[in-house]
């Protein structure tokens, strides 16, 4: 048990060190990511200038700006750049074999690697994020009550796990098709539109709004932001949280199933 913990610890520290190697590029990249926010603020100011009562689907202009900023926080947790394509690539070029002969679990290893990367990311990104949020503080309605704040924090952790297991499952589909780029492309498109990254999901007309509400994608960006802004009614809050947990569990089990099934049919092609 202790030896096992030690392996995981080594993996983790290795990934942290790896990520720290390019920190300069990294701070710049993180700060630049906020530039599109500027145009969003101007765009929505112009949109709301045309509205007579200053609200649309329950959002004011300030709500929308706060919403976009909060989805950036959510996506800092839930987005997994290169995870699915990385796993599929390892399957294709045969690198995956090392997980068959070494006493390391593929999903566990990837999860720790991600956690390492993400932790370093937060360490570095905290500065730019804090600065932007401070500059934009007037757009926020204020801190949510303790219950919502707790749900918000928990939803961030869950969105990381959900994002991870969802993308890992997609990557593991590579055991069956080898080339998953078109699958990933469809996922990316849907993710951008239906996770709430592009706009608050309330903007969608019915029946789309309801359908999208059933997808797990909304937990990756929309949901944490909506919780912080108290757009989720109190009676639904914990119900939604439970659903989010259920989706996370579902993809966790799915990825495990896919990994084992994949290993069974894997015939060791590649280098």
């Amino acid at each position: 048990m202790l030896a096992r913990a030690q392996i995981w610890w080594t993996v983790f520290t290795m990934c942290v060190a790896e990520r720290l190697a390019y920190r300069g590029d990294f701070v710049l990249g993180t700060t630049m990511r906020f530039l599109p926010m500027i145009t969003q603020i101007f765009l929505w100011t112009a949109v709301f200038a045309s509205s007579s009562n200053g609200t649309m689907v329950g959002f004011t202009r300030n709500d929308i700006v706060a919403y976009y900023l909060l989805t950036m926080v959510a996506r800092a947790f839930s987005s997994m750049p290169g995870l699915a394509s990385g796993i599929a690539g390892q399957i294709r070029n045969g690198e995956i074999k090392k997980f068959l002969i070494q006493p390391i679990d593929l999903i566990g290893f990837s999860l720790l690697a991600r956690m390492g990367h993400k932790l370093v990311y937060y360490g570095v990104a905290l500065g730019p994020f804090a600065l932007v949020f401070y500059l934009c503080r007037d757009y926020f309605p204020g801190w949510p009550p303790a219950e919502y704040m707790a749900a918000f924090l928990l939803s961030l952790v869950l969105s990381f796990l959900l994002g991870f297991f969802l993308e890992a499952s997609l990557g593991l589909a590579g055991f069956w098709t080898l080339e998953i780029s078109s699958l990933l492309f469809v996922y990316m498109l849907f993710n951008f539109f239906f996770s709430g990254h592009m706009f608050p999901l309330e903007i969608l007309p019915e029946p789309w709004r309801t359908w999208v509400g059933w997808l797990p994608l909304k937990y990756l960006a929309y949901f944490p932001a909506a919780v912080f802004l108290e757009k989720i009614p109190p009676e639904q809050l914990w119900q939604e949280m439970a659903l989010m947990g259920a989706w996370t569990l579902f993809f966790m089990l799915l990825s495990r199933r896919l990994m084992h099934a994949g290993f069974r049919r894997y015939s060791g092609y590649g280098g």
Binding site: S51, S52, N53, M56, I203, P205
Partner: peptide
């Protein structure tokens, strides 16, 4: 969608 919303406010 955005224009649809702007029309929807009735003015």
């Amino acid at each position: 969608l955005i224009y649809r919303l702007m029309y929807a406010d009735g003015d």
